[in-house]
Amino acid sequence: MGGLLGELGKKLAEQWLTLLVLPGALYLAVVAAGHTLGHGAALDVGRLTQAVSAAARDPQVTTVGGQVVLLTAVLAGAAAAGLAAQALGSAVERAALAAGWAAWPWPFGELAERRTAHRRRRWDALRAAYEVLLTQERAPRPADRPSPLERHRAARRCERVSVERPERPTWSGDRIHAAAVRLDRDTHISLLVVWPHLWLVLPEETRLEIGRARAALTRAAVLGGWALLYLPLTWWWWPAAPLAATLVTISARRLRTASDTYATLLEASARLHLTDLAVKLNIGELPVGPRLGAALMRQLSSPVPRPDPAP
């Protein structure tokens, strides 16, 4: 038992150091550099070196007690910055996935609605162009058929907007929503209803893989939280601006990749293990499709209670 607790404590310490302290210490270093140099001497390494050397020679820092206090303050500040980045990352994740955008307060809800409508119109136009190419592909004369490369490019342009018809203001949100849309269309199940039950029958390896994909999505959002923390530093130190812009770009790319991986795993695990859930619920052997989905929904859906008849 003691060995288990020791190993758990070691892993927690590693997580604390990796996720909070190290990025937070880097943030504090950037804050100190920006405060020391300002806009006028933003890239003056010599001035920064002199300031660090002068601070290191301070009598209060050279003592053991002063060093302990300084180290404690740095660790506490770094941890606080890491917690702030994680809190901002949660907000970034909610905005990127936009699951409940219709309930966002004004003006964010209105902006999200306009963005969703714009993406939907663009997707409809690109999808119509793709459908034209599919129709032309069935032309009797080979010369009248479009090239496969042209068709693939049209499909790719459509997928860059959304893999299904947009229902959310962001690509990442629509990508995860597309998994539910496809399962509803192909198997007539509601992923929101089925998923908690399906999760309990998934193999351990599958759950670990989904968990890793979900953690990657969270880390990408936290990186966006760090970008928001670096953004105010541009007020007195301009090099923080390209640093924040770089973090925003990396976060956006990772959010897109992580949401695609997560949605793919959700859909694949549902298609592969719906029959396992049906076995657990004593539903007859049915292939994955509308009949199986309807049977699962009847078992798992909670009917709306009917009001008692008036006396």
Rank of each mutant, 00 (worst) to 15 (best):
R214E: 13
W195H: 02
E137K: 11
W104D: 02
A55P: 05
S269E: 05
A76I: 06
Q299A: 14
G2D: 10
A25N: 00
A155R: 10
R127E: 13
S147C: 09
S251C: 10
T116D: 08
H273T: 04
P107E: 02
W238R: 07
V161M: 10
P148Q: 05
R160N: 09
H118Q: 13
A240P: 02
A310S: 05
A41F: 09
T275Y: 06
P23D: 01
L247N: 00
I189D: 01
S53M: 15
G6C: 12
Y27T: 00
W199S: 07
A32K: 03
A215W: 09
P107M: 09
A85F: 01
L83M: 09
L208D: 08
P148Y: 08
A13W: 01
L296H: 03
A13C: 04
L296N: 03
E110R: 06
T249N: 08
D44G: 04
R122K: 12
A85I: 01
I176A: 09
A263E: 01
G293H: 03
A76D: 02
A278K: 04
A244Q: 11
A112C: 06
W238L: 12
G3H: 06
L183W: 03
P290Q: 04
L12P: 01
V30Y: 05
P142K: 08
R291N: 10
A245T: 08
E137I: 12
V222T: 01
N282Y: 11
E285Q: 15
A263R: 00
W236F: 15
G109M: 04
E7F: 14
V52Y: 07
S53D: 15
V92I: 09
A78I: 02
L70P: 07
R214C: 12
V64L: 15
L272M: 07
A227V: 08
G40C: 13
A81V: 05
T18F: 13
V193P: 06
L223T: 02
L43D: 13
L8E: 05
A213M: 07
I210V: 12
P307Y: 09
W104R: 00
S53R: 14
P107N: 04
V222W: 02
V69Y: 02
L265E: 00
I176K: 07
L286T: 01
W199G: 03
L266N: 06
R291W: 10
E14V: 12
D144L: 12
G293W: 06
A81S: 04
W199T: 04
L281H: 05
A81Q: 01
R207P: 09
R219T: 07
R298T: 13
G38T: 07
I250F: 11
L272H: 04
V132R: 10
E285S: 15
R121P: 10
A81F: 03
T206S: 13
T218A: 06
